[in-house]
Design a protein around this nucleic acid. Structure first.
Length: 672
DNA sequence: TGACGCTGAGTTTTT
DNA sequence: CTCAGCGTCA
C-alpha cells in the first residue's frame, strides 16, 4: 500500500493524528500521495469509503484521482466521495434544497447565463452599457466568493460604482430566487450559509465526512475555505495538499493565505513538505528555486531531483515577434527530427491567448501538427445552450431565462412585443413566464392568436416533460428534437452544411450523454430524474473528456495558466519580456509576486529542456514597440543559463545549431 | 430579420 | 490591428 513512496510521501499518507498540510512542490507526486492516502485510509485504517471526502477544483483532477484511487483500492468500492468543490456543493444543496428555499429541479446558471442575466438587469434598471455588465458580473461573483451578501454590499457601497454593483447584485439575487436557480458561486456559498444557520444539518454532514482531503488548497477562496472548516469541525480529520508557490489564481478570488491560516485554525497542524521532484533536471529545478526565492515565504521549500543537471536553460534573443515565432517553429521541427521524438513532447507557453496566433501560423507553414488548448467550452456552444435550455425549462418551469432563450428557437412567431406583455402580466401575477403563458387570464392583455401560440408552446413542454418520465431518455429527446425541427433549424442557421452537421453531432453527443446518465442507477438503486442529470451535466466539462481521449501527437500550445499541472519534455516560453511576463497590468497592480509564481509554474513544466525567447521589438496593434527583457531574467542562476542570439553576431555554436535544424527539417521533409 | 459599419477594448479562467 | 457587440438601415 505504501511501497514506491519516498519517506516523506509515506509519512504524509499514514499521518492521521492531527490536521496535515502537505506542501507539495511541483512534480513531487502529490496525486500519488492523495490517492494512496485514500487507499490507505480504507484498506489499513478501516475508514468507510463512503465517508471519505476528497475535493479538487477541476473535473479532470477529480476523474484522475478517482481512477487512480479505485485502482488501488479495488474497483468494488462504492461511494468514494471524490468530487469537485462544486459537485460537493451540488450534492449538499440537492439533499437540503428545501431548507434553502429551492424547489426540486432547480437550475444551475453557468457563467454565461449569469452574465446574460446581469446584462439584462442592467439594461432594464441601469440603462446601461453592456461592457460594464461583464465587470459588474465579475464584481458580484467576487462579492459572493467573499461571502458578502447583496444587503451587505448595499450597506458597504462607498462609491457610485459600488452602489451600482450592489443594486444589480440585489436584482440578480432576486431573479435567481424567482427562477428557482443558483449560480456556480452559490454551489459553495449556499451550503456554507445553511451550515451556519443549522447546526443539526451541519452535524449530519460532518458525520458523513470522517476524513476530508483537499487538493490545490492554495486555490481555495473564502467560501470554499469556510466550507472545508465547517465540514472538518473539531474532529480535525483533514489533509490538505497545496503549493503556495503555484498560486496563480488570486485574481479570481483564490486566497493562498488560506494555507498559512491553517496554522492558526489548527495549532496542532502537521506540515510535511514534498521536495523531491521526479520530473525535471537539476538545472531546471535550480532555476525554479532561484526565481521563487525572491518571493517572501512562510513555508520554506526547495525542490531537488536525482535526474542529473541536464542541459542549460536557453534564453534566445530575437529580432521581433516574427523572428521569434519562426525560431521556435524551426527549433521544434529540428529537435524533433534529430531526436525522433513525438510532437506532443513539445509545448509552447505564453501569457495571453492571442499570442498563439503567430506560432500557429509558423507551425502550419511547416506542417507541424499542433493543438491549442483553451477556447470555447462544449456548453458555451449555441446549439448545446439551446438544448440545455429546453431541458432546464422542462425540469424547472420557473426558469425564465431558459424560457426566453428557447421560446422562439426555432421560430414560433413569438416576438418581443408578445414577450414584453407576457412578462408584464407574469410580473403582476408573481408567476413565472411559462406559468403565465398557460393562464387564461393572459387573454386580457394579449390578443387571442398570440396567447394561443404561447399556450401551445407550454403545453408542448408539458407533453415532453411527461414523455421524459415515461420513455427512455434517448427516445424522448429524439422525439423532442424531431418535433422541434431542430436539425433543419441548425442548417438554416449555419453557413455551411458541414458546419451544421458538426453542430448537430454536438447535439447528438449531448443526447447520448444524457441518456447514459439517466440509465445509471445510484448507490441506492435509484435512477436520476432529468433535473438531476442536467444539473450534473452543467458542472461537467465534456470537452475535457474529449480532450482526455484525444491522445493525438501534436505540439501543445497553451497559456502559462493552462499549463499548471502538466509536464512536457521540451518547453518554450514566449515573450520573456517586461509588460508581458510580468504583465503590464500586474506591474501596475503591484502583483509581481503572482507573476513570479506564474513563471515558476512555467519553469517547472519542463522535464528536460527549457527555452525562453524574447524579442527586441514587437508589433502591438499597429506600431512597433521596443521590448525590454523581463526583470525575472536576472533572477535565473547564471551558471545554468545560456544566452543565444545576443546582438547581431550569432555565436558559432548557434550557427551550427541552425544549420543542423535546417538539415534536420529538410530531412524530415524528404521522409514525408 | 439580416447585413453593415461604428465603437471600444485588448491577461490569465474552473465550475 | 482585430474582434465582439451594438445600433442602424433596407
Amino acid at each position: 500500500m505504501t511501497n514506491n513512496l519516498n519517506p516523506r510521501q509515506r509519512e504524509a499518507v499514514q499521518y492521521i493524528d492531527t490536521p496535515l498540510l502537505v506542501l507539495a512542490g511541483a512534480g513531487s507526486g502529490k496525486t500519488s500521495v492523495i490517492t494512496r492516502k485514500i487507499a490507505w485510509l480504507i484498506g489499513t485504517a478501516g475508514y468507510d469509503p463512503a465517508k471519505i471526502v476528497a475535493v479538487t477544483f477541476t473535473n479532470k483532477a477529480a476523474r484522475e484521482m478517482r481512477e487512480r484511487a479505485s485502482k488501488l483500492v479495488g474497483s468494488n468500492v462504492k461511494g468514494l466521495g471524490i468530487s469537485t468543490f462544486h459537485t460537493l456543493g451540488l450534492n449538499i444543496i440537492r439533499s437540503e434544497h428545501k431548507a434553502l428555499g429551492l424547489r426540486s429541479g432547480f437550475t444551475i446558471f453557468d457563467a454565461e447565463d449569469a452574465r446574460a442575466l446581469v446584462r439584462e438587469l442592467m439594461q432594464r434598471d441601469a440603462g446601461g452599457d453592456a461592457s460594464l455588465a461583464d465587470t459588474v458580473q465579475q464584481a458580484i461573483s467576487t462579492l459572493k466568493n467573499d461571502m458578502v451578501g447583496a444587503e451587505d454590499a448595499l450597506a458597504l457601497a462607498k462609491s457610485p460604482r459600488e452602489m451600482l454593483i450592489a443594486q444589480v447584485y440585489e436584482g440578480y439575487e432576486r431573479s435567481l430566487r424567482a427562477y428557482n436557480a443558483v449560480d456556480f458561486d452559490d454551489l459553495i456559498l449556499k451550503p456554507v450559509q445553511l451550515f451556519n444557520a443549522h447546526g443539526d444539518v451541519l452535524a449530519r454532514w460532518q458525520d458523513r465526512t470522517r476524513y476530508l482531503l483537499v487538493d490545490e488548497y492554495q486555490d481555495t477562496n473564502l467560501s470554499q475555505y469556510r466550507l472545508v472548516k465547517q465540514l472538518v469541525g473539531v474532529r480535525g480529520a483533514l489533509t490538505v495538499v497545496g503549493d503556495d508557490d503555484q498560486s496563480i489564481y488570486a485574481w479570481r478570488g483564490a486566497r493562498p493565505e488560506n494555507l498559512v491560516q491553517l496554522k492558526e485554525d489548527f495549532p496542532n497542524l502537521k506540515v510535511i513538505a514534498l521536495e523531491q521532484n521526479y520530473r525535471s533536471t537539476g538545472r531546471i529545478l535550480r532555476a525554479a528555486n532561484a526565481v521563487i526565492a525572491n518571493n517572501p515565504h512562510v513555508f520554506e521549500k526547495k525542490l531537488w531531483s536525482e535526474l542529473g543537471p541536464g542541459d542549460p536553460i536557453r534564453i534566445v534573443a530575437c529580432k521581433d515577434e516574427q523572428h521569434e515565432a519562426e525560431k521556435i517553429a524551426t527549433e521544434i521541427l529540428g529537435h524533433r527530427a534529430r531526436s525522433n521524438g513525438k510532437w506532443k513532447d513539445y509545448a509552447v507557453l505564453y501569457r495571453g491567448n492571442f499570442q498563439s496566433r503567430l506560432i500557429e501560423e509558423k507551425l502550419r507553414e511547416k506542417q507541424v501538427p499542433y493543438k491549442v488548448s483553451g477556447g470555447q467550452s462544449f456548453f458555451a456552444r449555441a446549439e448545446i445552450k439551446d438544448l440545455m435550455a429546453y431541458l432546464r425549462l422542462i425540469a424547472n418551469p420557473d426558469d425564465d431565462s431558459a424560457f426566453l432563450r428557447v421560446v422562439n428557437v426555432p421560430r414560433r412567431e413569438i416576438g418581443p412585443t408578445t414577450l414584453e406583455k407576457l412578462a408584464q402580466y407574469a410580473g403582476k401575477r408573481h408567476v413565472s413566464l411559462s406559468t403565465a403563458a398557460g393562464e387564461m387570464g393572459l387573454g386580457e392583455v394579449l390578443g387571442g392568436q398570440y396567447r394561443e401560440k404561447l399556450a401551445r408552446f407550454v403545453h408542448w413542454l408539458d407533453d415532453v416533460r411527461q414523455r421524459l418520465h415515461r420513455l427512455p431518455a434517448k427516445q424522448a429527446l429524439n422525439e423532442m428534437l424531431e418535433e422541434l425541427g431542430y436539425e433543419a433549424w441548425l442548417r438554416s442557421q449555419t453557413a455551411t452544411p458541414q458546419g451544421a452537421m458538426k453542430r448537430y453531432e454536438n447535439v447528438t453527443s449531448l443526447v447520448e450523454s444524457i441518456h447514459t446518465m439517466s440509465e445509471k442507477v445510484d448507490d441506492h438503486g435509484k435512477r436520476p430524474d432529468i433535473g438531476e442529470v442536467i444539473a450534473r451535466l452543467v458542472l461537467l466539462d465534456m470537452l475535457d473528456q474529449q480532450e482526455e481521449q484525444d491522445d493525438s501527437d501534436r505540439v501543445q500550445l497553451m497559456t502559462l495558466h493552462a499549463s499548471k499541472g502538466l509536464e512536457f519534455p521540451n518547453v518554450w516560453v514566449l515573450a520573456f519580456e517586461e509588460n508581458v511576463l510580468p504583465h503590464r497590468s500586474s506591474i501596475e497592480a503591484n502583483t509581481i509576486e503572482e507573476e513570479r509564481r506564474l513563471l515558476y509554474v512555467g519553469i517547472t513544466r519542463a522535464r528536460r529542456q527549457l527555452t525562453f525567447t524574447h524579442a527586441q521589438k514587437r508589433k502591438q496593434y499597429n506600431e512597433m514597440l521596443r521590448c525590454e527583457p523581463s526583470r525575472f531574467m536576472a533572477e535565473l542562476p547564471k551558471d545554468d543559463v545560456r544566452f543565444e542570439g545576443e546582438g547581431t553576431q550569432a555565436s558559432s555554436e548557434e550557427k551550427a545549431r541552425s544549420r543542423d535544424n535546417a538539415l534536420a527539417a529538410l530531412d524530415a521533409l524528404f521522409k514525408r
